[in-house]
Simulated assay, not measured.
Amino acid sequence: MQFNLIARFLLCLCVFLGTNTYAEVAVIVSAKNSNTTIDTDTLSRIFLGKTSNFPDGNQAIPVDQTEGAVARESFNEKVLGKSSSQLKAYWSRLIFTGKGTPPKESGGDADVKALVANNPNLIGYIDSSAVDSSVKVIYSF
């Protein structure tokens, strides 16, 4: 009887914690970048190599977090509409045909933020709790 109560408590705890592990993700650019917002279509096109420009016409260079990062999985699913395996297949085709190069991978939140903050042409995504005045949020989910 006591085992069942403990098991139920642990199950409830896991469910509760599991639903709260997805924090808000912020798409960021340098504070020096003139863009203030971006729509999901343009964002997706930049990260899928279909365009290399921000809405204002300046060059846009995407930066991904390391494979397996929570923010990356969330970004891929919610913005790009693709799983990790679908993206691998997508980029494999483009690389093989010489038609594209995937975004550079650059660690986690701190690494991406540091890179983006120092280059107004870069665009990346981080957990919203990591945002500071060195970067500007142009989209969040």
Rank of each mutant, 00 (worst) to 15 (best):
N33D: 08
N33H: 10
S34H: 09
N35K: 00
T37C: 00
T42H: 06
T42G: 01
T42M: 03
S44D: 02
R45K: 15
R45C: 00
I46S: 03
L48R: 14
S52A: 08
S52Y: 12
N58S: 15
Q59C: 02
I61H: 05
I61D: 08
P62H: 07
D64W: 09
Q65Y: 13
T66H: 09
T66R: 06
E67D: 14
G68Y: 11
A69D: 14
V70I: 12
V70L: 12
V70N: 11
A71V: 14
R72V: 11
E73K: 14
S74F: 13
F75I: 12
E77W: 02
K78E: 06
V79R: 03
L80E: 03
K82C: 02
S84R: 13
S84G: 10
L87A: 08
K88F: 13
A89I: 13
A89F: 02
W91S: 07
L94F: 08
I95S: 15
F96P: 00
T97S: 15
T97N: 12
G98L: 09
G100D: 13
P102A: 15
G107F: 02
G108K: 10
D111A: 15
D111V: 02
K113T: 05
K113P: 03
A114D: 13
L122S: 02
S128A: 13
S128M: 00
S129N: 08
A130W: 06
A130Q: 11
V135D: 03
K136R: 11
Y139Q: 00
